[in-house]
Write a protein that binds this DNA or RNA. Structure first.
Length: 565
RNA sequence: GCGCCCGUAGCUCAGUGGAUAGAGCGUCGGCCUCCGGAGCCGAAAGCGUAGGUUCAAUUCCUAUCGGGCGUACCA
């Protein structure tokens, strides 16, 4: 991903250095100082340690093998050959195992600051995505219950990833797939019917594998208050769909509301049922049959998954004639691609990982490339309470809902918490800690930096300080804590790109903590208001840029940037 | 058994094959006559184990141990 880089001052400098290094290699090869077949890929990066210069490259180390010389010897030769002046380099040193470290001529960081301020809210946006259509499908929970912690994690990750992709220049849509067809809806209907009868005083058994949670009792109470008991006399096959229809509409509305309260809004709510009704599911099965991917066994239709390397085959249509979830999912993904998405990202729980390879295989079978379907698996959220694992179960109705999470922990803290962890780490979530010590959440560290800046800006306003872009003397910014803050700020566009293309929104949470740390460090060393006039103005520009980036980054992960806390 | 994911500080977790592996919480010690102390500075403490590839491995590969998940005509 080293070529994924924003067109910023930093990006331009990296390109310039890369060209200068490549030119130097070509020159010394022409002089027979070095012999090699081809240039290796090398990096030009901003070193983690400021002591290692403004930029550094590993080119000499990468070329060690090709040149048959030790890295430091190559570095000596290359360093002598680089045209420093035209590359804007003030000094070069060779360090460590063979890094070449560059120090740039002065004020390049100040130019970065100017650029950040000039770009304003757009700083962080780029066109890496070139407008390619990409879809992120996430949560897609069964509409038979309430959203739980796992859904909350998926919502935080999916929504943030979608925003970051948008910032990186992709054309993004968020989608929720409503599983409103199939077996679980049948079970759902049976459960609703049982509750209906029970609420009206009938002594009926509740289905063993039904949905036990209390919320569907509430739904049926509402149903009865609106429609009375007239369905007691109806045939089950007539009234069950009526119950299901009624309850689904309400459950889906609840889910929408819960997600909206969590700051997540979808572009499309896609109904599985429409795929069955339109014949899309039947058509894709027919298509696969025609293509020779399907065989009959024990009365069912099977997809030959072994043909694309799976261990076993999968049923597409059951012996009872009802298509499986797998068949519907193939039709669903065909539909996605027919809508013009070049890439489709699905965010699934780890319990679905067995589904990944066969879905990718199926994509090949229906004429798409398996890499067009990316599945981001997220590991489970394990809840702790009173020091013990809290086992979540829809069956017994014991789980913590998204609504409760937002109520107890708060939206900002919850979203930050989920997005700061990589999707593939198993999270231990201590409910007691989350409820009692929310101030320990790193989100407040970041938000505090923003609020602190807003407070300083307010002070500056009363002190009649207002920087003008064209006259502010940014060259007065020379303190190490100031410069390292600018350095960190200038990274923002590349951080967004990295998070987007690697599907790692947690990078932004980490980055924001680094920005906040750099700011707090600056604050401890430098005053803004009360210094000499021009210096105050310059620092005002610096903290404005900082606030702008913190706000932008928090927004990208769905967290607010309060001006006061 | 087989497959996927994860083992990093006392705890929860970051870490694009590179230079001295980071943060929060916890522990210990400093810092407000000064823009918000929800802050800053410092200390102790770590890459499960064993091989391999590489100039260079926490990162890639293999094995092994430990944890999670899956292995349905469920989704």
């Amino acid at each position: 991903m080293k070529d994924s880089q924003a067109s910023t001052i930093i990006g331009n400098i990296k390109n310039t250095l890369r060209q200068a290094i490549t030119a130097a290699f070509e020159q010394v090869r022409a002089n027979d100082q070095l012999t090699y077949e081809a240039m290796a890929d090398f990096l030009v990066e901003v070193p983690r340690e400021a002591a290692h210069g403004d930029f550094s490259t590993n080119a000499a180390m990468m070329m060690a093998k090709a040149c048959h010389k030790p890295p430091r010897v190559i570095a000596e030769i290359i360093t002598a050959a680089i045209d420093q002046k035209s590359a804007g380099v003030s000094s070069i040193e060779i360090a460590g195992p063979g890094f070449i470290n560059f120090r740039m001529q002065t004020d390049w960081l100040n130019k970065c600051l100017t650029e950040i301020i000039a770009a304003g809210e757009n700083f962080g946006r780029s066109q890496i995505g070139k407008g390619h259509k990409i879809q992120v499908e996430f949560v897609s929970a069964n509409p038979t219950g309430e959203l739980h912690m796992g859904n909350a994690r998926g919502a935080a990750i999916g929504d943030s990833l979608a925003t970051l992709l948008d910032m990186a220049g992709f054309s993004v849509e968020r989608e929720f797939y409503i599983n409103d067809a199939g077996n679980q809806i049948e079970k759902f209907a049976l459960s609703l019917e049982a509750r209906y009868l029970q609420l009206l005083g009938k002594n009926v058994d509740f289905p063993e594998d039904g949905y036990h949670s209390n919320d569907i009792i509430r739904v049926m109470e509402q149903f009865i208050s609106e429609n009375g008991d007239k369905y007691l006399s109806y045939e089950p096959e007539i009234r069950k769909p009526i119950f299901a229809e009624y309850a689904l509409a309400r459950k889906i509305a609840d889910i929408k509301q819960a997600l909206a309260d969590f700051g997540v809004k979808y572009d499309v709510w896609f109904s599985e049922r429409t795929l069955h009704e339109s014949g899309a599911v039947a058509n894709i099965v027919k298509y696969l049959q025609d293509q020779g991917w399907v065989y009959s066994k024990d009365g069912a239709l099977w997809l030959d998954c072994q043909r694309f390397g799976e261990e076993k085959d999968e049923v597409l249509v059951r012996a009872n004639g009802i298509p499986t979830y797998f068949a519907a999912d193939i039709a669903y993904h065909q539909n996605k691609f027919q809508r013009g998405f070049e890439t489709v990202i699905d965010i699934w729980g780890a319990d679905h990982h067995g589904h990944v390879a066969r879905m990718k295989g199926a994509m090949e079978a229906i004429g798409y490339q398996s890499k067009q379907l990316e599945v981001l698996l997220m590991q489970f959220v394990r809840l702790y309470q009173n020091g013990e694992i809290l086992k979540m179960s829809k069956r017994t109705g014991t789980y913590v809902t998204l609504n409760e999470l937002v109520e107890d922990v708060g939206r900002d803290a919850a979203r930050f918490f989920f997005v700061m962890r990589s999707a593939d780490s198993l999270i231990d979530f201590d409910l007691d800690l989350a409820k009692s010590q929310t101030a320990d959440n790193p989100v407040y560290y970041v938000q505090y930096a923003h609020a602190r800046i807003c407070s300083i800006l307010a002070n500056a306003a009363t002190a009649d300080l207002s920087p003008q872009a064209d006259t502010t003397k940014l060259s007065l910014i020379t303190e190490p804590s100031e410069l390292s803050l600018i350095r960190k700020l200038a990274d923002y566009p590349d951080e967004v790109i990295f998070a987007a293309v690697n599907r790692e929104p947690q990078r932004i949470a980490t980055y924001l903590q680094e920005v906040a740390a750099a700011f707090h460090n600056f604050y401890a060393h430098c005053r803004v208001v009360g210094e000499e006039h021009d210096l105050s103005l310059a620092r005002l520009s610096l903290i404005q840029a900082t606030a702008q980036i913190i706000k932008s980054g928090l927004k990208a992960i769905g967290v607010s940037a309060p001006e006061k806390m």
